[in-house]
Design a protein around this nucleic acid. Structure first.
Lengths: 235, 235
DNA sequence: CTCACCAAAACTGTTGACAGTTTGCAGATC
DNA sequence: GATCTGCAAACTGTCAACAGTTTTGGTGAG
């Protein structure tokens, strides 16, 4: 499809490039949460002036960085409550995505999804599945469904507003024992619903899946808080 | 509460002010969809330089304006398909909001919601309810529930990503006959679910309500397209 | 009269510089 | 010795100007 749709040669602005680069750098965990970033420093590192950089930072505001007038930029540092809210939003949006995908995905796409899961299953056997839930494979599965929903607006919101922050959260949180296997099973249920073209089931399975992921994240965060508290008491 | 919590004197940047002003101007329908906007012209009108203005425009990108590299800014002009997608996103997010609100809203808030509906009922009698569905009252009802969900992330997404565009759409679309009364009835159902603190029912009612609003919007758009087509044939 | 071509005007993307504020430190004071 | 005061460096918010591109209007050929 779209063999060689003529698009203008990738003319992208410095602001756009800076935005992509910043997302990449921040979600890779290069900075610690709450760390202050200097505009001049960032501009120098990126080799651009502060104008385009400020535009890029504006687009990241409230997503990956927080801005305080006359103070500056800090890497976002979310409280447990905010992580939970992030998963609630994700549950709503991705549930809808699964519903739409059950109708809109092509048979080829569903086959490819099944192949993906088969491969994950083999990998999970090898690595005991521990890394699965947080891994790239998980994102691929969800991304394929989001794409299959054929809804640009939904796709943009999920990628820009949810997944960036989610990746940042995953850097700091661990998975509960057995969560990886459970997630893999839930993925298979979702696939089943898509195969049988059942929108209600697809949405239901997806929402249950993400609700479980939220509970896992909350447990993990609680554990983190307790360890940190104990550490502070000891100090 | 918070008798005189000392907050820093409202220090807001020109970019922020420009953003608010632009949202206000565009959603009031001052420009026609697809109309090109000149940065210099806008900057002159706002009395600021292009730097802060570009920052504000960047935040509006993909929401109320579209940006083409080296060409400029245009007021967003959505296709029927995109309007439908907007309502799907709204259904997902606001359904979740209603679910959360069923648990989180205070009794006082629910009472206030009931009072609001009573008032709407009286107004609807007077104006035959025609203006209700598109009116301010409708937004107030929904906003109260969104606020009652106690979920900042959800609230931000709904206001920034959905309602701005929705208001712009409403400027061009009409309501189908009888839609106002139906919407009013659906609001009462939603209120009932909140009163009985039933999250499932609240989400279900809200989603049905927004699904109906979407169908109404689509019918309206189809009528619009047909009229436009007929107009072009005549010309 | 229509179409292609060309030059001028307008506009966007970007930069460097300036003004006012915040922050950190050194010296003075209790 | 601890705390407060004042200054200097760094930084953010803002602006005006420059380079390259797009658009527009006019001119001439067919």
């Amino acid at each position: 499809m779209n063999a060689t749709a003529i698009e203008p040669i990738a003319l992208t602005s410095l602001a756009e490039e800076a935005f992509v680069k910043l997302v990449q750098v921040i979600t890779s965990g290069a900075y610690s949460p709450g760390q202050r970033l200097s505009e001049s420093e960032l501009a120098r590192q990126l080799g651009i002036s502060r104008g385009p950089l400020r535009e890029a930072l504006g687009r990241l505001e409230g997503r990956l960085v927080t801005r305080t007038p006359r103070i500056g930029i800090r890497v976002i540092d979310f409280r447990p409550e905010e992580v939970s809210q992030l998963f609630l939003v994700r549950e709503a949006l991705e549930g809808m995505a699964a519903r739409l995908a059950a109708d809109s995905m092509t048979a080829a796409e569903i086959d490819s999804l099944r192949a993906m899961l088969d491969q994950h299953g083999r990998q999970a056997d090898i690595s005991a599945g521990e890394a699965y839930h947080q891994g790239i494979g998980d994102d691929d599965f969800h991304f394929a469904i989001i794409k299959g929903a054929r809804c640009e607006h939904l796709q943009r919101l999920l990628l820009d507003e949810v997944y960036y922050q989610l990746r940042l959260h995953r850097l700091r949180a661990s998975t509960q024992p057995g969560r990886a296997q459970a997630a893999f099973g839930e993925h298979k249920e979702i696939l089943g619903a898509l195969v049988s073209r059942n929108p209600d089931a697809a949405e239901g399975c997806m929402r249950r899946h993400i609700r479980n992921a939220r509970l896992n994240a909350l447990s993990s965060l609680q554990g983190l808080a307790e360890r940190s508290e104990a550490g502070q008491r000891r100090a």
